[in-house]
Simulated assay, not measured.
Amino acid sequence: MGDRERNKKRLLELLQAAGTGNAHCADGAADPDWASYKLGIFICLNCSGVHRNFPDISKVKSVRLDFWDDSIVEIAVVLQFMTRNGNLRVKAKYEARVPAFYYVPQANDCLVLKEQWIRAKYERQEFMADGKIISPPGNREGFLWKRGRDNAQFLRRRFVLLAREGLLKYYTKEEGKDPKAVISIKDLNATFQTEKIGNPHGLQITYRREGHVRNLFVYHESGKEIVDWFNALRAARLQYLKMAFPELPESELVPLITRNYLKQGFMEKTGPKQREPFKKRWFALDPQERRLLYYKNPLDAFEQGQVFLGSSEQGYQVYEDLPKGVRGNRWKAGLTMVTPQRRFVFTCPSEKEQREWLESFRDVLSRPLTPLNLLPASTESGCSR
Rank of each mutant, 00 (worst) to 15 (best):
T347L: 08
F81I: 00
S184L: 13
R385L: 12
L292N: 02
L155R: 14
E380D: 15
D178F: 10
L233S: 11
V326N: 07
C47Q: 06
K38H: 10
A120K: 01
T83P: 03
I205M: 07
A235K: 03
N260K: 13
F159P: 13
E225N: 07
G271Q: 11
L12I: 11
F154A: 10
V345M: 02
R140N: 12
Q193T: 07
V326G: 09
G315V: 06
K273T: 15
F154W: 11
P349G: 09
S350E: 00
R140Y: 08
E276C: 03
G211A: 08
R97P: 06
T20H: 08
K38V: 07
V78M: 09
E276L: 00
E353V: 14
A181P: 00
R291G: 08
E115H: 08
V213G: 08
P287A: 02
Q354E: 05
L248W: 05
Q125V: 02
M128H: 04
D70P: 02
N85L: 14
A284L: 11
G86R: 06
K242E: 13
S378L: 13
T270N: 07
Q314Y: 12
N151R: 05
L168D: 00
I257S: 11
G19M: 14
R342E: 00
A333M: 01
M82H: 07
E221P: 06
D321S: 12
I57Y: 00
D363N: 15
M243I: 14
P277G: 03
A100P: 06
K296L: 15
G138T: 04
P137C: 04
G382M: 06
I134T: 12
R290H: 06
T191R: 12
A17I: 01
L11I: 05
I75S: 01
E320S: 15
R4F: 06
Y316G: 00
V318E: 04
G142N: 09
R156L: 13
E268Q: 15
D109C: 06
F67K: 12
Q314I: 09
P340G: 01
E5N: 07
T191Y: 10
K279D: 01
F245H: 01
L375G: 02
L11C: 02
A333K: 09
V326A: 11
G198T: 12
A235E: 07
Q153C: 13
F266K: 04
C47K: 01
I257G: 10
I205T: 07
Y37I: 04
F192Q: 00
K324R: 11
K93G: 03
L358F: 15
F278Y: 11
F217Y: 15
S58K: 01
Y261H: 13
E225G: 05
F101T: 03
L111A: 10
R362I: 06
T258F: 08
C44P: 01
C44F: 00
E380K: 09
K146Y: 09
L309R: 05
K279R: 11
R119A: 06
L238M: 03
H201I: 09
I57V: 07
A190K: 03
S251V: 13
E174V: 07
S360V: 10
G211C: 10
R330Q: 14
L113M: 15
G198Q: 12
S312V: 13
F245C: 02
Y170H: 01
I43P: 06
K196N: 10
V98P: 05
T347E: 09
S58H: 04
L88F: 11
L256Y: 02
P349R: 08
M267N: 06
R149H: 10
V60I: 14
C44G: 05
P298L: 04
Q153M: 14
R158C: 04
V160A: 10
Q80H: 11
E250W: 00
